[in-house]
Design a binder for these strands. Structure first.
Lengths: 200, 200
DNA sequence: TAAATAAATTATACAGTGTTTATTTTTTTA
DNA sequence: TAAAAAAATAAACACTGTATAATTTATTTA
């Protein structure tokens, strides 16, 4: 076959991203390959590489979609109107909920073969930072010192992430959703209380 | 060629584990493959599979060696005699130091293609738990309530891990060793202070 | 409208991978 | 010494990402 023009470049792009995410959701990151994806959308590997350039970029595009949905979930929960500590807890809960609901896709965010070539694309980095900023904003409102807020944001972010990661990958003894939720609360409540009593 | 008997089964095993760790240390987990490993020790893939059975088990054996060394490092630092909070800080520092010094090998612990087949071997799980116990023990001495100590151990463990992971994989803005150290201290000090003031 | 050009898609090939099976060579045993 | 067992290799299978050549279609140009 040759040129078909049944789908525009952008259509192919979104078809691939959608189907790629389906594949990961169904069988995990290991079940994904460019050839299988191509077969599922009725094309050939070459077309995939025409559109995305490289395997890494294809994966980044698929994971980028997941990041967008995750950010949207968190943002919705933040808009519910909680304040202070409750707002941070809501954020962590939203993050954990998303990770549990879309476990395979969330895990895939961290299973991409790291470190081989150049770093991830800039637009992907931006998506990650946008997510991080969602946490930094309420913390800045909570802590007067800006440097302390920055440090707290990074500490909390990494810690929340660690709980999710170890929990969902089964590397933490009781990894039920409620157990993880308990750890999240434990972390946030005590860490913030520790900051509060820092002077005394 | 056929049977050579230049090396015993156990010798082959440790040769493979040693060389495998060298390969990962040199080029990261992506640079590792059973065929290359076999070539480097002067054998063929078949021999590797004779000894280890499967790729997953080979990787688990290599990573198991890393886990052992990590546990030894932490244990040495713990034996230095600090108490209470300082002991926990020493533990986190030892963990971070090891991860920084042996960055590729430490990262490889979490880059094994997860979730495809059955879970990791029991003996590997045991090594991980041994490491975790190193943290739980001093925490139990610090907190009177055993349940609270268990929860705190898991929370802290996952958080320390998260800081290391995000930091070393470059997903956290300033990921210098000292910045990570600062986050570790921030986490431990404030979390524990939060626990201390829980009643008031 | 017919021919030339450009673009999109496929087909093919390459060097890898983990894994399995058959073969060969060596050692041990009877 | 002959037979059995063990250890290692060689070869094949079905994959993978990637690159290049070939082919078909759409668009532009003459």
């Amino acid at each position: 076959m040759g040129r078909r023009s049944e789908h525009t470049h952008e259509e192919l792009r979104s078809m691939a991203i959608l189907t790629g995410n389906q594949m990961i959701a169904e069988g995990g990151f290991a079940a994904f390959s460019a050839r299988k994806l191509a077969r599922r959308i009725g094309y050939t590997v070459g077309t995939i590489y025409n559109v995305f350039g490289t395997h890494e970029c294809l994966i980044a595009s698929i994971n980028g979609q997941t990041l967008d949905e995750l950010a949207q979930c968190v943002q919705q929960r933040l808009a519910a109107g909680a304040e202070g500590l409750a707002q941070l807890q809501a954020l962590a809960t939203a993050y954990l909920d998303f990770a549990c609901t879309h476990q395979q896709r969330w895990s895939a965010l961290f299973e991409a073969p790291r470190g081989s070539k150049a770093d991830v694309p800039d637009w992907y980095r931006a998506k990650r930072e946008a997510l991080f900023d969602l946490l930094e904003a309420p913390l800045s409102r909570l802590l007067s010192n800006p440097d302390a807020a920055k440090l707290a944001a990074r500490t909390l972010w990494a810690s929340i992430h660690g709980i999710c990661l170890l929990g969902l990958s089964g590397r933490l003894a009781p990894s039920s959703s409620s157990a993880l939720q308990e750890m999240m609360d434990d972390l946030i409540v005590n860490y913030l209380r520790g900051l509060e009593y820092a002077g005394s």
